[in-house]
Design a protein around this nucleic acid. Structure first.
Lengths: 332, 332
DNA sequence: GGCTCAAATGGCAGCGCTGCCATTATCTCT
DNA sequence: AGAGATAATGGCAGCGCTGCCATTTGAGCC
């Protein structure tokens, strides 16, 4: 298997082998400009024979305009982002674009560094999560001249294109729902809110809505670390240990809510009569639990799809609100 | 916000502005070769002032040798692949490499097309799932001269580097475990096995092991579609409807097993006394369910990490077996 | 046959950078 | 001070392709 070090076949060699000019080969391969059938066959035969693979690095440099789309995302553990990438990559592949990505771990400084290194590839667009970025990030992006797409958060100022929904509205709707159902002793279990600003916005809006109805948030438990099933379980356990007399708990995420749900199942805490649970995201798994999870379903895959669509068609600057859906479920 | 169409600053402009030669700027920016402190400051000042971002397209073309790593993965819905990407991207980012990816939907033809378009970027390495590829894919990869890394399946011939574990061994271990626990009427619930060849290998080996102990597989239910919690529930429901007298069920994945678990919870089927469940993957969520899921934990993040490490250090061809861990759990 | 027009084709500069080599400035040592 | 070494620097070809322009070819027509 020692086939390393081979010199790649170049367009010039194909031209030579086919007995035509370089530009002709280029035209044939891109189906751009005119050429005869006979020529095309000769070229394709040579391509086949030599095993030629076009060099897009050179092509991009020469034509100034790449088909790369850079995704700078906070995490791959949070299912949200794989879902977004999934929606986007389907559309990008159909349109002969390529996705590059990097993970920030919810760190704005790291985001800035990664955006810089992404811009070095002169992508057609840079896709980011949320609309909070460092001054430096925003400046670089604006100066780059490439398209900027901010996802999953419409509560802020967009740099160019934004696709998603309002987290504030989601938090508000969740609070209204719990209030309508009659819950009055409400708690919250969340993960690191400083880094995950979108979860922070939901929580803030949730509390404000409770406040408007003169229902204070009774207690909250913020676990260190990322959103996860385990943290949800631990968080609820601690919250209940401190404040047993709650009738509903709002979670920062479905992962967390599922952890809470399992905790209740294990402890025999009846849901929703003894305690109601409400999540966020609308994960598939929440629909299959013995009691479907009450939550807000977010359009994650669609967000990726729409973002990619706008990029490939080079759409004008705009804000696309894809909304969300409140799932009543059976846990609240 | 209409800042489109800007002409990017080039190295030549920086050189001009700093009053030095192009090569000097290049050396300073890459900390390669020698230059005085004074020069470095002048260059950096010019870079800062002009907002220069190096063009890695041009750099890569000139220096022949990219720091791109191409991932051609079957899916982003199956958590396995985000996990692998997560492990890999951390290492790649530390080593100034960039990850590009594309999704095949478990389609070998699509894989071939995507590999071709990835090779056009002249990546340092192409990372694939499994070791079954079309003839064309293998030929292109071998001819490309770039590193090839095949993940998560050691039961076959590797093209260059392979990192993962044996699915056959995992299937075998799962069968042995269920037999040791005394189960004798065993069923299987799986998803599309033609596309997911690794699940197919586990199942085959599982059956062979049962056979060696003269315990035939009693029944199986193969659901159409991907591995998911919902399909697991549906699958188990159908399997039990047809063959109620089972004492254990092996699932193609933890997702599926969780679906089965929820089905049992909802129907009041006692686990494991009435029915034992066994999964595959060792998802975090399986540790937090009221009864921890019995399963095989696979080193997904480590697989990505090790693969990336071998790529950045340009390690020789090799097979790295990271093994797996059987989790006894409480469902079998 | 000679003419026109469009289709088909080739030549070559240049995209922005790096690598090599030549040149110049700066030291070090006798 | 001068020779020789070393550090610092600039010039420029060329990576493989595309885009432009010039040229050739062929078809159609009077």
């Amino acid at each position: 298997m020692e086939l390393r070090h081979q010199v790649a076949v170049t367009l010039a060699e194909v031209a030579e082998a086919a007995g035509v000019g370089e530009s002709t080969v280029s035209r044939v391969l891109r189906s751009h400009g005119s050429f005869s059938d006979k020529t095309r066959e000769r070229v394709m035969a040579a391509v086949e024979r030599l095993g030629y693979v076009p060099n897009r690095i050179a092509g991009t440099l020469a034509s100034a305009g790449s088909r790369l789309v850079a995704f700078v995302i906070p995490s791959l553990s949070n299912i949200v982002f794989p879902d977004v990438l999934r929606g986007a990559s389907a559309v990008l592949e159909e349109n002969r674009h390529q996705a590059v990505f990097a993970v920030t771990d919810y760190d704005p400084q790291k985001e800035e560094a990664l955006v810089a290194s992404m811009l070095a590839w002169r992508p057609a667009a840079v896709v980011l999560a949320g609309c909070e970025h460092t001054e430096g990030t925003a400046k670089m992006l604006r100066a780059s001249g490439c398209r900027i797409v901010e996802l999953l958060d419409l509560d802020g100022e967009a740099l160019d294109i934004a696709v998603g929904f309002s987290n504030r509205a989601a938090g508000h709707a969740s609070a209204e729902f719990l209030l309508t159902r009659g819950y009055r002793r409400i708690g919250y279990v969340g993960h690191d809110l400083i880094r995950d600003t979108r979860a922070g916005k939901r929580f803030k809006s949730f509390c404000e809505t409770l406040g408007m109805h003169d229902v204070p948030l009774v207690d909250r438990e913020i676990v260190a670390g990322a959103s996860s099933v385990e943290n949800g379980q631990v968080g609820l356990e601690q919250l209940l240990a401190r404040t047993p007399a709650l009738d509903a708990v709002y979670f920062s995420n479905d992962d967390m809510a599922l952890g809470g749900y399992f905790h209740c199942l294990a402890r025999g805490i009846h849901i929703p009569s003894r305690l109601a649970l409400f999540g966020y995201n609308g994960l598939d798994i929440g629909r299959v639990t013995p009691q479907p999870l009450s939550t807000v379903r977010t359009p994650r895959v669609a967000t990726g799809r729409v973002a990619a669509q706008l990029i490939v068609e080079n759409a004008p600057s705009q804000i696309v609100d894809l909304g969300f859906e409140l799932i009543e479920g059976a846990t609240a």
